[in-house]
Amino acid sequence: MELRHLHYFAVLAEELHFGRAASRLHMAQPPLSQRIRDLERELGVQLFDRTRPRVKLTEAGALLLEHVRPVLSGVATAREAMRRIRPGESGVLRAGFPPDTHPVALPTLTSAFSRRVAGVLLDLHELTTEEQLAWLRVDKLEAAVVRHPADTVGLESGPVVRRELGMVLPAAHPAAGRPGEPVRLRDLNGTPLIIFPREMAPGLYDHMLSVCRDEGFLPGAIRHARNPGFVHGLVLAGRGVNLNEEPATPLLDGLVWRPVTSPALAWLTSVVWVPARHNEAIAAFTEAVTEALTATGHRIDAAGEAGAVPAG
């Protein structure tokens, strides 16, 4: 028993007219009649009473119709689910995003993406750069929003956006100075540094420490933390200073954020993807990410593409 034969049967049961049923099925009437006879022969029952002037369902036909309708409905539901799961085809786009993304970026992103491809569901995952790259390469993501430098060999990238970094430090720290006054990294020499764990983004981690060293800042200790509340608690407790972008919300009393003088310290962020999987949805997502990050203080980096950023 083939599924298409059940479909032919259900349509004929609804129309009770071979000509109209054949027209709905986009087929000629004789092949439809043959398929129905094949089904009756296989089941060993007569499904339709063909006595003129009209076709009628037999008792066996009515019983079969009760069983066939939920089967065909389930098949249609399964097909729709499979259609929606295909990325970029009115389906789902799975994408990663850094854990410390500015909160305003996400509603801006989803709105901008929906304007471009209204039929695609955006499935966002909070993942570190290293996690995103790993997921991307095993087809668990279609697109990743990563921080550079990073190992993006074999991947394509959209525009790189830049967000300058600064330092979160105790308000009483000698290097704090006045609001808006940049901190010279060498003035922090010997101070412990609080930074994200290296496994989150190894290339970026090494790059940041290298810049600090070149600017005369050799931390007295390195402490790892990723949750902003815990990071700020450590700074408030005098356990170190934190290199990060300007906070999205006011800091706790006793803490200040100051820009740093080194232009080499910045978040460089872009969307990356596997070249063979690029489609309209990924292109729309890339544009939406650029729009969202620009709205939260990022700007297009002069270097242009992530491929120009060293792997670190």
Rank of each mutant, 00 (worst) to 15 (best):
G166F: 05
A295T: 03
P275W: 13
L122Y: 05
G74C: 06
E130C: 11
L72E: 02
A172Y: 04
A81V: 06
Q29V: 14
E181A: 11
E164G: 11
E66T: 02
V161K: 06
S157K: 07
V241F: 01
V274L: 12
A144T: 03
P31A: 14
H224Y: 06
A28G: 11
V241D: 01
R37T: 10
L155K: 12
R41E: 08
L185I: 08
R239Y: 10
A281I: 07
E2N: 08
L32P: 01
D206V: 15
R163T: 14
S262V: 07
A281Q: 03
V92M: 07
F217Q: 02
I36N: 01
L6W: 11
R223G: 06
G190D: 02
R213S: 08
L47Y: 00
L32S: 00
L185H: 03
T269V: 14
A176P: 04
E130V: 04
P219E: 08
A221K: 08
F230S: 08
A60W: 00
A95G: 04
N227L: 15
A281L: 10
H298P: 02
G96H: 02
L169T: 03
A76I: 00
D187M: 08
R277Q: 12
L251P: 00
E246G: 01
I222H: 06
P182L: 10
A302W: 09
V271A: 12
E42M: 10
E142I: 06
